[in-house]
Computed example of a mutant assay.
Amino acid sequence: MVYKDRITTEITEPITVFLIGMRVNKLLPLSRWLKVARAMPPMIETLMKHPDKGMLHGESFFRLGPLTTILVSYWKSPEHLENFARNPNDPHLKAWQEFYKLVGTDGSVGIWHETYVIQPDQVESVYANMPMFGLVGATKNAIPAKGHRSTFRKRLLSRETVKN
């Protein structure tokens, strides 16, 4: 479903935003980076089947030239994220270990991640002509971006007295 009106969302608890991706630095050998790329779908499948692991929502993106992937994901907490990453019964730990055996530091395939813990008064969002996407997809709480939620300033800055 696409929301044709402008929508926003609000969070009442901290939320963890996790960005993770891969960049192909050398196209050959194909088998090296393809194996790294194929490691992500089982992780996403596991997380979607088991919401108790803490991932609330995710969006994947792909870019050619240089070949790069990114997953923007929203988590209940950094502890949920870390537990998934370190649990030997989940697919991440084995994939991470295999990456270092296969690629190591040879420069052929890069992997990266960034983690942010966002407090409720430090985030704002707006979506127009969009489905449940990003933060609103994570909260499952689409709110009309009207009245006291109609502008960036009203959504974010008016939550506390604007300083200076």
Rank of each mutant, 00 (worst) to 15 (best):
L71H: 09
G65W: 13
T151A: 07
I15G: 06
L157A: 12
K140I: 04
E160R: 13
R32F: 00
I15T: 10
V17D: 04
T115W: 00
M22Q: 15
Y127T: 03
G134F: 01
H57W: 10
M1H: 07
A85W: 01
V109N: 02
P14H: 04
L135Q: 04
L135A: 06
K154E: 15
F18Y: 14
K49M: 06
A145G: 11
L28R: 12
E59P: 00
D5A: 10
T16L: 10
S60K: 02
M48V: 14
M1D: 08
E114R: 09
R86L: 11
P29S: 09
W112A: 05
K76P: 02
D5P: 00
W112K: 00
K76R: 13
P131A: 10
W33I: 01
T8C: 12
L27Q: 10
I118M: 03
H57P: 00
H148D: 15
E82P: 00
T151D: 10
Q122P: 04
D52W: 02
E13Y: 07
I20N: 04
H92Q: 01
T68D: 05
R23L: 07
K49S: 08
Y3K: 08
Q122V: 09
L34W: 14
V72M: 12
D5T: 10
D5M: 08
R86T: 13
G137K: 11
V123D: 10
I118V: 15
T115V: 15
I7P: 03
H57N: 11
A37F: 15
H113Y: 12
S73G: 08
P66G: 11
V2G: 02
R153F: 06
N129S: 12
M48P: 00
S73K: 05
G104F: 06
E13R: 15
M130Y: 08
L67R: 06
P120Y: 14
Q122D: 15
N25C: 04
P131D: 06
G104Y: 04
A138V: 13
V72L: 14
T105A: 07
S158C: 12
G21F: 11
I7G: 04
